[in-house]
Nucleic acid binder design. Structure first.
Lengths: 212, 212
DNA sequence: CAAAATGTACTAACTAGTTCGTATGTCAAG
DNA sequence: CTTGACATACGAACTAGTTAGTACATTTTG
């Protein structure tokens, strides 16, 4: 296949694309769409600006590709959790922990979503790939709520999308607003002890809400 | 004082400043710091770009002034609620409703905070005015939690900052992530019915958490 | 008059996107 | 298997348009 030449260049389109996307993700997530610099991305890449336009057409095209890739990553993680054989409360707690840990581990993703919201989700609207990832979580939650209610564990009939929002809000906010919140309240939300406490807190809150 | 001249110009520094700030708030909140255009702000103002630099020194200076003004507005609203003569649960529910309605009514503020987080709260750090607005809410919440626990209404001893975060997260997220969330789940979070449901939901969740 | 407030027109620097030319891979024909 | 033609992948340097910020002159106000 393609071996590393001594000095001469080596064609490796796959690698080039991925390299650009990786660098661009970082750039967009730390500077926003308008703040990101194509030249800056190009420099940090092992290829040139020419290639960015060759593969992605425009700065916006690149941004969209970055966004799509980020969403694609979650979708895959989300699927294989096998919660249906767990007790409702246990299943819910597991799902919450997973969401919590995902956001905590992927600040870039969180920041990109924030940025996309500033732009009124205009790019997301144009991407079918992104628009079609509603399914799994909501169905999973709906199933858990249903089982829990039937078993008498949950006394409240709640809307699964609302529950998902409640979970997302907490997990997302901790990461998205880490800096302003941390500054105002002099608290480091990346601190291990606080992470542990918060992970339990959101789970307890949701569960007690459903039980009340 | 200063009257509107027929055609000639009229000096009105106060008004000029405010006019610029108003326009700039809108511009920064919809385009972000880097995306905002000084020329665009100038055009929408009844004065010129020269004045922006005369009063605010630079684009960043203007951005900071916008941010400070936005924070100053909440601080004032927050103070006069007189919650200490209400029953703990009632006081908490009132506080939550207030936060909820504030965020719902001030999407510009929410967006500015999101933007500031993208910039790692770098500007906020440089503004003492903003850094010093931690006090009131936390003390208020601490008082409510204390009274509630002593009365036996709340069974859980919770950290007031954590509780504030939980409330903020929910209220903030509904506004900050309105577009992506709305797009993915085909749900309009500005819908009146949903607003009502969510306002009750976050209150119930926090209260049931504290009671559990 | 002096200081504060304002308008007009300009500039230096930056930045998204392009032009032009070159190297590399591949695949069919010899 | 080797040649050569064609498509794909790539680099360096350039450009046209934009944008933050300024120089200079003028008017208002106390």
């Amino acid at each position: 296949m393609a071996e590393r030449g001594e000095n001469g260049r080596k064609n490796d389109p796959q690698q080039t694309r991925e390299d650009i996307l990786l660098v661009a993700t970082e750039e967009f997530s730390t500077h926003g769409l308008a703040g990101a610099r194509v030249d800056s991305i190009a420099e940090k890449t092992r290829t040139s600006k020419r290639m960015i336009y060759y593969y992605f057409g425009s700065k916006e095209g690149l941004y969209l590709a970055v966004l799509e890739q980020s969403y694609r990553k979650i979708r895959s993680l989300e699927s294989d959790l096998h919660l249906s054989n767990l007790e409702p409360e246990e299943a819910l707690r597991t799902l919450i922990s997973t969401t919590f840990d995902h956001d905590e581990a992927n600040p870039d993703f969180v920041r990109l979503v924030s940025i996309e919201n500033i732009h009124h989700a205009a790019h997301m609207l144009r991407s079918e790939a992104i628009r079609d990832l509603n399914v799994s979580v909501i169905e999973t939650i709906a199933g858990i709520l249903e089982r829990g209610f039937n078993k008498g564990v949950f006394r409240r009939r709640a809307d699964p999308i609302d529950i998902h929002m409640m979970i997302s809000a907490f997990c997302f906010f901790r990461v998205s607003n880490r800096y302003t919140f941390g500054t105002i309240f002099r608290r480091n939300l990346s601190d291990g002890e606080i992470i542990e406490r918060h992970r339990g807190m959101i789970a307890d809150a949701v569960v007690s809400y459903l039980k009340s």
